[in-house]
């Protein structure tokens, strides 16, 4: 189908975009890669009256190191995250997550900012970014603020972004040496979206003992969830297969996934433990 009629403005700066957002209010949507928004508009699930295109705003894409943080511009496309040497060497779990989103076309057009701002509970980036304790830089008309992942992803398709704010940057703390990251995903056979996924950040001491671990699970609810019981079980332990398996077995604790046409809630709870184990094992094997 064709989208309903809409107006189009190409913003030239973030400031202009925030002014336009303020002017049009709920009738406006920001357009980045468009790979979630345009299909929704074609199905008339979304009918914004105005599209504010961020594509021509300079300086919003690219990956760079900023102190102890990896700074990713909101308009960076998935393919660039997946192939970034910085990401692959310092945060391989992040590159992994980017590489399994959608298909080649989606990865070449879809943006990390668009993905996290859309906050689809079946998306990949929110899960890995939750495990990596990323934060999100939001710019409004009257200033900028930085929001941590747990406070950013609020509910189904709902984030901390105010109506006049633009997400400009994703900041990911660079883990210390001796840590590893990984992402493992069960994709839906039709859509390729997450049925269940798991992301892990494991920090070890020189003896191989786990100093800290962050494990996030996707597909189990309205937003990514940290597997607190799993993390606690790993803490201070040697990262043996037995320890990892026992910890991963707790990955579904406190989750309440919904059954759908493809997978039952029981299957999701079970498979979360399998993917959590895979993600932790892979993260623990990375230097």
């Amino acid at each position: 189908m064709f989208p309903a009629n809409f107006g189009y403005v190409a913003a030239r700066s973030v400031e202009e975009a925030t002014e336009l957002l303020a002017k049009y209010g709920e009738e406006a949507k920001l357009l980045a890669g468009g790979h979630s928004l345009i299909p929704a508009m074609k199905l008339r699930l979304a009918s914004p009256r105005h599209l504010i295109d961020l594509g021509r705003v300079p300086g919003l894409s690219g990956i760079k190191v900023d102190g102890e943080t990896l700074s990713i511009g909101a308009l960076t496309v998935h393919a660039d995250v997946a192939s970034s040497d910085l990401a692959r060497h310092r945060l391989p779990g992040l590159a992994e997550a980017a590489s399994v989103i959608g298909d080649v076309q989606v990865r070449n057009r879809g943006t990390i900012g668009g993905s996290v701002a859309h906050a689809d509970p079946a998306a990949d980036f929110p899960v890995i970014l939750t495990a990596l304790d990323a934060s999100f830089v939001l710019q409004g008309r009257f200033g900028r603020r930085t929001v941590a992942a747990p406070d950013f992803f609020l509910d189904f398709y709902t984030t901390a972004l105010a109506p006049d704010e633009v997400l400009t940057e994703i900041r990911v703390p660079l883990p210390s040496s001796g840590s590893g990251t990984a992402y493992a995903k069960l994709p839906h056979p039709a859509s390729g979206y997450v049925v269940v996924s798991a992301a892990a950040l494991v920090v070890r001491d020189p003896s191989g003992r786990c100093v800290s671990a962050a494990v996030a699970i996707g597909g189990m609810g309205s937003r990514p969830q940290r597997a607190a019981a799993t993390e606690a079980s790993l803490h201070g332990q040697p990262l043996t297969p037995e320890v990892i398996a026992a910890a991963a077995a707790k990955a579904s604790e406190g989750t309440d996934p919904e059954s759908d046409l493809y997978a039952s809630a029981d299957y999701k709870r079970h498979i979360a433990t399998v993917y959590a184990r895979q993600a932790i094992e892979t993260a623990a094997s990375r230097k």
Binding site: H188, P189, A190, S191, Y193, L261, Y262
Partner: peptide, 23 residues
Amino acid sequence: FREQMLYGDDGEALTGSLMNYAV
């Protein structure tokens, strides 16, 4: 392995898109 067009008991098409019908 993958494909099945599903209807609810009342005839509603449940897998009427490539998002949930696996080709």
